[in-house]
Simulated assay, not measured.
Amino acid sequence: MPSVSQTLRLVVIAPDSLQPDAGDDYAIEQAERSRALRIGLLEAGYNIVAVLPTDTFLAERLAQLQPDMIIVDAESEARDALEHVVVASRDARRPIVMFTNDDDTTHVKDAVAAGVSAYVVAGLSPERIRPILEVAMARFQHEQELRRELAHARSELNDRKLVDRAKGVLMQRQGMSEADAYAKMRRAAMDRGLKLGEVAQRILDVADLLG
């Protein structure tokens, strides 16, 4: 993941068209807002690699494009757009920044819980774009580090449980002391280039087979 000082590759999730029907005032307003956001992103130095709709191919397109960040440009359909994006990016997490003029903030909490790094309601000006995206990237990277640390802690806890069970098997079946059982497992791990937890799992697997 690039640092915030480098040019980020963005995918913008936005309304399908910037050229709505002339008589549709609402669509015209949304098109102008969406155009202004994209211009602001470009002027801030970001690289917009694609503008995509929230359709069934979104996950595939994101996998192909591998953007650094996803920008969701949504109005009253913000909840539906966000759900599509979260589902499409769940296998490869990326920071998500949502820009909307929808003043219904009842689902902001759900959006943040779903993985949105920044949720920006109205009042967008070009000079605000870079700080918003930099903070969103920093927050995402911090959360990813916390996730890695949690996963590592869970893995270590699981390994300790496996080692304790495997020591019990060796102590029971080979009459070893706890210290000797642990030493034997450590030697086996070093000799085979395995983690202690992997050796413990093999011992337990063999014990299950032998009954």
Rank of each mutant, 00 (worst) to 15 (best):
P53W: 05
T106P: 07
V116G: 01
A74S: 15
K109H: 13
G45F: 06
L82S: 01
V87E: 11
E60L: 12
V116F: 00
T105F: 03
A81W: 04
R94E: 00
H84L: 02
A74P: 01
Q66K: 15
P53S: 14
V97S: 02
T100F: 05
T106F: 00
N47C: 12
E75L: 10
F99K: 02
A118Q: 02
V51C: 14
E43M: 15
D91S: 07
V120P: 10
R94T: 06
L82F: 11
A81C: 12
R79C: 06
R94S: 04
N47T: 11
A114I: 00
Q64P: 04
M69R: 03
P67I: 06
M69I: 01
V51I: 14
Q66P: 00
T100P: 03
A44M: 05
A63G: 10
P53Q: 14
G115S: 07
G40L: 07
D68G: 05
M98P: 03
A88H: 13
K109D: 15
S89M: 03
Y46W: 09
R90Q: 11
D104C: 10
V51N: 09
A118M: 04
D55I: 07
P53G: 11
T100D: 02
E77T: 14
A88Q: 11
A44G: 09
E75G: 05
G115H: 10
A122F: 06
G115Q: 06
R79S: 13
E60W: 14
